[in-house]
Design a protein around this nucleic acid. Structure first.
Length: 485
DNA sequence: ATGTGC
């Protein structure tokens, strides 16, 4: 597929569509990619990044990260910073799975210690962490309790004994976006959420046991400061979000925005999927307060899953989970919008940063970071496929250009439908087992959709983020065992 | 992504 002829190469890793690319663009669109990745990008990414550049109040550039691909309205990998006074908030810039995110957990166990118990561990994780569409959690809460969870996030877990203080310190925003208001959430969304705490979900959501081999440690010093200190150290990475709760909130507000956008606010968009409302309007503020509830539910969901992981490892090894070194490394959101301060032309400005399939990546010295990571920069977790592995990186100061943002995953190269035609889940499971990767799933079709071959080259994506000055590769993590929906 | 949709 030929690249758009207006596309300009700004640097080895930055490509730009000027405002002349499409009528209505207020700022240029920039795509962070190598030559290989830009050539593999779907046309839809260019169109969608340009559509986002037309949204009121967009500041600087509309961005797409190197793992970018086609999404609902915004590309997945999309980033837009809005002026909060003049700009809009758009659910399509956050995604249906609000606060879908990654959490990385340390252990002090080695591959040699874990391998003999791998099947037991994976089987037990699979039975303790519900997976799949429509799965229900082992914890059901009352509506009033759920409203607290939606407003407090991980803080609720700490109060109930499902977290230790350090878990919250090592979660983006302390595991709670303040200002969540459950009165702005529909009863339907709350009903869907009641039984979803501690559940993984489906699609590309998974929980993986991984190993950090010495040859894959790329920066010894920062790796040590992140707690990767022993050869062949085992870690646990998982990926999930706000389940049906967040999905319902996104659906509710997309409908509401579509009704008022034109008639009440005179906003027109190139694509209905970019439904939006002025951030300072009642509708915009209601969505922001409801979205924060979904963000908080997702933080609490990941915290409950961490609690289950601690129980499982403790059961299998007959030791206290903290003796096993089951400590947080970090938790990053990758589907949110939030008010953040960024330097624009040398002056600090508050901006509403939409990240959709994009990770915050604060560089060294950022005051928002916990003290233990202030020197290194923020841990960034880029999840790859179960075949090819994942990366732990650290934020770099070059990310000032992208509102402190980097990639979030490897990014699909083909649709789920195509992947299902090309790969077979049962065969994949067998092949991976032969390579020492044990997978439990209740959907072999879903497994085929997540085949490594359906994704971009994770090594290339991680390398490009480093070359672009967004995030530095610290450790490549290889899969040993995986549960998925 | 999603009690998977026109």
């Amino acid at each position: 597929m030929p690249l758009p002829k207006d596309l300009i190469r700004i640097s080895p890793t930055t490509w730009e569509l000027p405002v002349t690319f499409k009528k209505g663009m207020l700022v240029p669109a920039r795509i962070i990619a190598s030559e290989k990745l830009i050539n593999a990008m779907e046309d839809a990414v260019f169109e969608q990044a340009a559509n986002v550049a037309c949204l009121s109040g967009i500041t600087g550039y509309s961005y797409c990260m190197p793992d970018g691909h086609w999404g609902y309205g915004f590309p997945i990998g999309g980033l837009a910073a809005m002026d909060p006074e003049r700009g809009v908030i758009s659910p399509g810039g956050i995604g249906f799975d609000i606060n879908c995110g990654m959490r990385l957990v340390l252990t002090n166990l080695t591959e040699e210690e874990v391998r003999p118990r791998l099947h037991d561990l994976v089987n037990r994780l699979f039975s303790r962490i519900p997976t799949g569409v429509g799965c229900h959690g082992t914890l059901k809460v009352k509506e009033s309790e759920f409203r607290h969870i939606a407003e407090q996030g991980s803080r609720w877990c700490l109060k109930k004994g499902y977290a230790v203080a350090e878990d919250l310190e090592l979660t983006e925003e302390g595991g709670c976006f303040t200002g969540g208001d459950s009165a702005k959430v529909s009863n339907k969304a709350i009903e869907r959420g009641l039984e979803q705490l501690g559940t993984l979900g489906s699609g590309n959501h998974y929980c993986e046991i991984q190993v950090a081999r010495p040859e894959n440690v790329l920066d010894q010093k920062i790796a040590r400061s992140f707690g990767i200190t022993i050869p062949n150290q085992v870690v646990i990475m998982f990926h999930c979000g706000s389940r049906g709760f967040g999905h319902q909130i996104a659906t509710d507000y997309l409908q509401r925005f579509l009704k008022v956008m034109g008639p009440k606010y005179g906003l027109s968009v190139t694509d209905r999927e970019l439904a939006c409302a002025p951030f300072r309007s009642p509708e915009g503020q209601d969505y922001y307060a409801a979205m924060k509830c979904a963000v908080n539910m997702a933080f609490a969901n990941r915290q409950m899953i961490l609690h289950r992981i601690r129980e499982v490892f403790s059961d299998i090894f007959h030791r206290d989970p903290f003796d096993l070194g089951l400590r947080m490394l970090y938790d990053v959101a990758h589907n949110t919008a939030k008010l953040e301060r960024h330097l624009i032309d040398g002056a600090p400005r508050e901006l509403l940063v939409h990240r959709k399939g994009a990770t915050r990546s604060l560089g060294p010295g950022s005051p928002e970071l916990p003290a233990c990571y202030r020197e290194s920069g923020q841990p960034v977790i880029i999840g790859g496929s179960m075949e090819t592995g994942s990366y732990l990186l650290s934020g770099m100061t070059g990310s000032n250009a992208t509102f402190a943002t980097t990639a979030h995953g490897s990014g699909r190269t083909m649709s789920r439908h195509q992947a299902k035609k090309l790969f077979r889940g049962d065969r994949l499971q067998q092949q991976l087992e032969q390579r020492g990767i044990y997978i439990m799933t209740d959907s072999l079709g879903g497994l085929a959709e997540e085949a490594g071959g359906a994704y971009k080259d994770i090594d290339e994506v991680a390398a490009v983020t480093e070359l672009a000055g967004l995030s530095k590769r610290i450790v490549k993590l290889l899969p040993m065992g995986n549960i998925k929906g």
